[in-house]
Amino acid sequence: MLSRVAHAVYWMFRYLERAQNIARFVDSDIGLYLDDPKGQGNLWHSLIAATGDHALFEERYDWYDRDSILAFLTMDTEYAGSIISSLAAARENARSIRATISSEIWEAVNSLYLQVRSLKPVYGSLADPNELCKIVLSGSYLITGLYYSTLNRGDPWHYARIGMMLERADKTSRILDVKYYILLPDAKLVGTPYDNIQWAALLKSVSALEMYRKRYRRIAPPDVIGFLLFNREFPRSIQHCVARAFESLTAIGGSASAVPWLSAQRSLSRLKTEIDTGTVEEVLSIGMHQYLDTLQSRLNLVYSDLYSNFFEPHERAQQGVTSGETRSADA
């Protein structure tokens, strides 16, 4: 498929996944805020920390208060990582590849964007952020459903899945990183109801609470960490994301029979082995933040390899012009 189109499919689904994740974070933290209005400082702060965009936030807003944080994350069109900006970017990418995705997917993406855009912010924030989250979550579930039920399992489908999985792995690792940082220091709270609520909220913010309970019942921090990082069955665990991305990468035309492996295959395969063989003890001995930080930079490396293997436009006057030949075995 066209390099430009593959790139746009990848980003379109990655942006949708991003919007969906932010909506889930916001949704679960609003609930948490109601449980403990006094502890809100850290809580809201952690939402911004999960985006990694403190500097941008502080440039645009004076205080870490509920309204500013919600405004920044949801409807701020000037902030590229907000829900509205992610949806707009997903839609613009979708528009540029309308001939590739199904009409059903395009209409759902277009409608979701138009619906969210029509919500009117009050004083820069939304009167009802839960309503927004509900719209974004159900809209993006619809699109994911259409993705599974209306597209050929060809290259576009696989590029889309790689985009979704890398984004999801990144977001799960970030939320784990910041929440862990907030949760852990206060030893005297361990085992208290409040502590349980916090760990439950972490699970909830990646829609993991119910599935976690089926597996472990009681909430214990090492189990939560193990579940989010290494569980093979939960679809938002990092293991799951990396394994699915690797499957798709291997199925893509050009990499299926590549000898030697393309650089993206190598970097993703190494990451997968790391996760497949990892243990919670190892993570804790390295240090959670350290471990996740490394993980995130390796996810970024996979993207830059994908870019040079598949997405980068071909230069004119390039040699080796035979149909079917993969352009650069090594990047």
Partner: peptide, 21 residues
Amino acid sequence: EGQDLVVEDDVVYVSTTMGLQ
């Protein structure tokens, strides 16, 4: 789009994930 097309020796190619076709 124009940016997807490349002409080599008077033959037109599209820039794909699997090279020029």
